[in-house]
Structure formats: C-alpha cells, structure tokens
Design a protein around this nucleic acid. Structure first.
Length: 586
RNA sequence: GGCCCCGUAGCUCAGGGGAUAGAGCGACAGCCUUCUAAGCUGUUGGUCGCAGGUUCGAAUCCUGCCGGGGUCGCCA
C-alpha cells in the first residue's frame, strides 16, 4: 500500500480521461508527473506537479491545467479538499475514510508493509573485504554496517541480493602474515624471539596461530628454508585470521553469503581466471603495448619508464590506461580485481555495488571502466565510499596509533556500546561525510542520543499497550480487532501527521534502495520517533488526546491502532538496519 | 598539477529540480510542585562558499573559480 503510487495512478488515468495531448497532438510523456508529500503540511496531504510539467508540451498555462485537473479529482470520494497553489501545484487533502482504510491496510500487511514487489533483479553487494592479516579495527566498521544495511534495504525493496566478501589472500601481505606466524610458531616451541622485527605483524592475535602450528607440525618446520613452509603456514594463518574476522562480523550482526578467495582465481579448476580476464580484454581489442607518463606529484623512487601491456580503460572513462602486470611478470591487484568482477558478472550480477573506504577513491573510475569493458557495457558498478569515523569519549578525541598497536578494534567498540548503537550511529550520517562517534553519547539514555530516541519510541508503544490492557480490558487489541476500530475518529493534526509519516515508509525504502543511501532509513525512523514522542507529549496538556483514555474507549481503540502501525514501521525499519526493536528500555 | 568527496543557522548535520530552505544542540524566555518512564513549549538565528549558465522554477543540474579533506604505476 503506497498512497503516493495509488494517487499517481489516479492522476495518470484522469489525464487520460481528460484526453490531454501535446500541442502537436502526440501523446504526452508522463514520466515526470509525480505525486509527492508537500514540504509544508499546510499544503495538504498530496502535491501533484502535473500541470507544471505538462504546461510546456501542451502549450497551455499551468494554473489553467491545474484547475481542470482539480475539477476531476475533486469528484474522487477519497479526496476531501483540493486547491491550486503556487506556480501550478494541485494540492489534495484526503478524506478521513481514506486514511481509515489506509491504516487498516497497514495493520493487515504488518511487517510486509513497505516491502517492494519482488523480482527487481539480482544485486551483488561486496563489503568489508578486509585483509586477512589481523582482527577488524574500528575503521572497518562503517563500511561493514553500510554495506550490510544497504544489502538489507535492497532485499526489502524487492531485489535478490547476495552479500559478498572478497578475501585478499594472494598478495605480498599474506606472505608477511605467514612469516609473522612462523615466528610465533617458533615462540610457541619455546624459542625466545625477542622483539618482532620491523615489517612483520606484531599483534598478539597471531600467538594462537603459532600454537596451532606447533601442535600440528611439532618442530618439523624449524630451520627449514621459507620455500618449504611458507604455503602451509600461510594457509593456516589465513584460516585463523578469517575465523577471527567472521567472529568480529558476527558480533556486528553482519553475515555474508559468499566469501570469495582472490587466490582461487588463479587456481580455478578451469585454469587461471586472471589470465582469462586479460584474454577477454585482449580479444575485445582493449589491450595494447605502450608507455605511461610518470605520475604527477611525488615521483615513486623506483620509477622506471618502460613499455608494457596496458588496458585501454580511458575508453570507458578512466583518466589513464592501466597496467595489469607488474615488472616481475605477476599480476597487479587491479588485474585480479577485474577477474573477480568478471566472475561476479558471469554469476548473473549485472548490478554490482562495492563498499570501499574513501582512501580508495582514486580506484573507482578504473574499476567501473573495467566492469563496463568485461561485460560489453551490460554490467554496471556503483562504488560507495565511506569516509572516516572519528572516535571521541565525552567530547575528547580518542588517540589511535597503528605503530604502537593501540588502534581500537571493532570488537572493543561493540563490546563497550553494543551492536545497536554502533550500527545505528554508523548509518545516521551520509556515508560520504565524515562521522564523529562518541562512546559516551551513544549509550546515553536521552533524546540527544538517536539510537535511544528511536528504540524508546518503539518501547513506548509497548508501554502504551500495557496500560491499555489494564485500563481498557474490554478492547480487542489483536491486529484484527484494531483494524476493526472506528479509524475515522483519527482527526487530530498530530494523528493525521503520524499517518502521513507512516504513509511515506514505502517510498523511503524505495528511495534508499535506488539511491543506495541507507542513511535515509535511519533519518526517517528518527523523524517518525520524533512525531510519536511529540504527539505523546501533547497529551500532557491535553488529556483528551492521550492514546489511552478510559472515558473514551472508541477513540482509544482507534489511536491504539495507529500507534500499533507506528511500532510496526519502526520495527521494520530497525530490522532492515540490523538494529533491535526492544519492548522496554533498561 | 590531475582526479574524487565535501562546503547549508554560532555548532553537528538533513534536504540533492518545486512553493516561505528544515531538525537537533547552543543561546534566550517560559512551563515542569506529576503524570502517559528518562522533561515540555515557544523565541532566536541562513547571501545554501563565490560567479556565470540551463530551466516555467536551482541549495539541488552544468562550467569556472575559492576553501577543506582524500588520492595519484608494480600497496591491497
């Protein structure tokens, strides 16, 4: 049930009935005709822009068209008031009967209210993809939550979504990991290893890996050349790190459908997938031998000017063509990534989304170029860049240093403030804007803390129902019973306001899904909670507006129905964000 | 220097073709001596960085500047 879509249809069929055509007699393009909530509540419940959009193609005055349209729509029994305003808006106010039917429908749909129709196509969302070289730190947090919530939103909107994690287990970093683990292995055997040398990972989290290696191999890997143990140790270390990362993700309430190994690309059953991807590009005439200009700005120390094989990414909007092979003959990371995205495309994902940290921004164009190139223009990639999170404690910045190993892990944050606070706060800002996160603020029980404010709104509804059961035991508070209340009694501006907010839920979901902007859900929930709290507070001075009035069971019944719908939308929204909807606050 | 993101009220930020640009915090002024659980109501406050352009209409789209951040072959 989407009242804006409903009236959008009514407007379009009215235009057809009126026989409106373009000035030259051809059919009108109605794609820009929309029915929206007006910015100002004084303008009514729905705003129709048809007259303004169609005035030019029809060669008529917008206000005259609006008046003509108004004449028809005023006859609609669901429309209570009409007016033409401003440059040619047609404003509609809906009848009490329409609102009553709407609310009953929302109650009947329950958690399904706001879901898009299924069958919108497959989308692959790749996020986190942290290197398997250590525990997740707080910097990974935002991308993890944004990606997870976005995937949920897309699923809610009707897409078939796959959540994916790309394991970077093929580069030089995992060799460093293996050497670090080998050192811990010797340590586990009783050797004094002293300080961890520069260039290796110093963290204690590798000790269990060392112990596991000691248990499995005894002393058999000691004193052997690296070539004899590297692969085995590397595999064990990566498995250990990924197990740790999965636990971290689980603590954040993040679960991926697919963990895709970079290494598996080169060792695929059907051969080297990276080579195949490059062959695909070569066959398309997109590879050539050439030279690159040295990069502007700081010149790399070991820059060598050489002729190499380049991918013509500029043909797809990139700034310069890109090498896919290093000078030692191995593939660049980009080459693997192309093969990976090609794999995603072959698995049926023409619609791909990657969530990256903002420091990878320079990589976006080439990856999008590659996706276009390997799919013959049939696939597209959207990259959401997440800006930094700055940590504070009671207003004071939290110092972090990677060198000293004093960086804050994801687990520490979740353990201290809880998943709900972490997830909601990470989503309570546009992802491309920096975000301040204050450990103290996000656990405060006050209206200044958005997490609390929204969850409390949900809990408050349950508190209202507890009181209703006590004060008005005769009322049927089941969903059917509430749907059968006399909902036309809802006429106060605050009540209508709440229903109008509820009515926006489907379009908010759709908008967030289409724009790939999960924060819209969080802000909507905050607005809805705010409406509820505000209306509640009005009952303080005006007892006749209270949700539960023992003197007025009929109005109470209707209000309880409305409040149930509010809670239902809050619960749906929070569920999509992966945040719990508590029945009471403690 | 190239590219990307950002610039909206004193502060933190929404709004991203539509009407008189919003919210929270702050500030100011009341209420709150009790009910519906962690306050409430009101007031204040903006040249939407600047200048052009597109449009019936621009905070929103385009171009160019200014300012802040990020990034710039073989790190992933």
């Amino acid at each position: 049930m989407d009242i804006f879509a409903d009236f959008g249809e009514r407007v379009r069929s009215t235009i057809a009935r009126l026989g409106w055509t373009a000035a030259d007699g051809t059919a009108l393009d109605l794609t820009r005709v929309v029915v929206e909530p007006p910015r100002d509540a004084a303008h009514g419940d729905l705003a129709v822009n048809a007259a303004m959009v169609l005035a030019k193609p029809m060669g008529k005055q917008p206000r005259a068209l609006a008046i003509e349209l108004m004449g028809e729509l005023a006859a609609d029994p669901d429309v209570a008031e009409t007016e033409v305003a401003g440059p040619g808006f047609l404003n509609l106010r809906l009848s009490a009967g329409y609102w009553a039917r709407f609310l009953a429908l929302v109650l009947r749909e329950g958690e399904a209210y706001g879901r898009g129709t299924p069958g919108k196509g497959a989308v692959n969302v790749e996020y986190v993809s942290a290197n398997p070289t250590g525990p997740m730190h707080v910097g990974h947090c935002r991308g993890a939550v944004v990606g997870d919530a976005l995937a949920n939103i897309l699923a809610h909107a009707g897409h078939a979504v796959t959540k994916e994690y790309y394991i970077n287990d093929a580069g030089a970093q995992v060799d460093v990991l293996a050497r670090s683990a080998h050192l811990r292995y010797r340590e586990a055997l009783g050797e004094a290893i002293g300080e961890i040398p520069e260039g290796l990972y110093p963290g204690d989290y590798l000790k269990p890996v060392g112990e596991a290696l000691a248990k499995r191999f005894g002393a058999s890997l000691v004193g052997k050349p690296e070539s004899e143990w590297l692969e085995e140790v590397r595999r064990t270390a990566i498995d250990g790190m990924m197990a740790m990362i999965r636990e971290d993700l689980a603590a954040l309430n993040v679960r991926h459908d697919v963990f895709f190994s970079e290494k598996s690309l080169q060792n695929a059953p059907d051969g080297d997938r990276v080579a195949q991807a490059i062959d695909t590009l070569t066959a398309a005439g997109l590879m050539y031998r050439g030279r690159l200009e040295p990069p502007k700005g700081q010149l790399p120390e070991d820059w060598e000017d050489r002729e190499q094989v380049l991918f013509r990414s500029t043909q797809f909007g990139d700034d310069v063509d890109r090498p896919l092979m290093k000078s030692d003959g191995s593939y660049t990371y980009f080459a693997s990534d192309i093969a990976y995205h090609l794999d995603k495309y072959r698995r049926g994902f023409a619609n791909q989304i990657d969530i990256w940290g903002a420091d990878h921004g320079g990589y976006v164009k080439r990856m999008q170029a590659a996706v276009k190139a390997i799919s013959g223009g049939k696939a597209s990639l959207d990259v959401k860049l997440c800006q930094l999170v700055k940590l504070f404690r009671a207003g004071e910045p939290v110092k972090m240093s990677k060198r000293s190993g004093s960086f804050v892990t994801l687990r520490e944050v979740v353990d201290e403030v809880g998943v709900d606070a972490v997830r909601f706060m990470m989503l309570f800002r546009k992802s491309d804007a920096p975000l301040d996160f204050d450990f103290q603020k996000v656990t405060e029980q006050s209206k200044d803390n958005p997490v609390f404010y929204v969850q409390y709104a949900h809990a408050r509804v349950h508190s209202v129902f507890a009181q209703a059961r006590e004060g008005l035991p005769a009322l049927d508070l089941s969903d059917e019973g509430l749907g059968g209340a006399d909902l036309t009694r809802l006429s106060d501006a605050g009540e209508i306001g709440l229903m109008k907010r509820i009515a926006q839920w489907p379009r908010v979901v759709e908008g967030a899904a289409e724009s790939h902007e999960p924060h819209r859900i969080a802000f909507f929930l905050h607005d809805l909670a705010s409406d509820l709290h505000a209306h509640w507070n009005r009952g303080k001075d005006l007892p006749q507006l209270r949700f539960v009035n023992v003197d007025d069971p009929l109005s109470s019944h209707a209000r309880l129905a409305m409040v149930r719908a509010v809670a239902s939308v809050l619960a749906s929204g929070l569920a999509v964000l992966g945040v719990s909807a508590p029945k009471e606050m403690r």
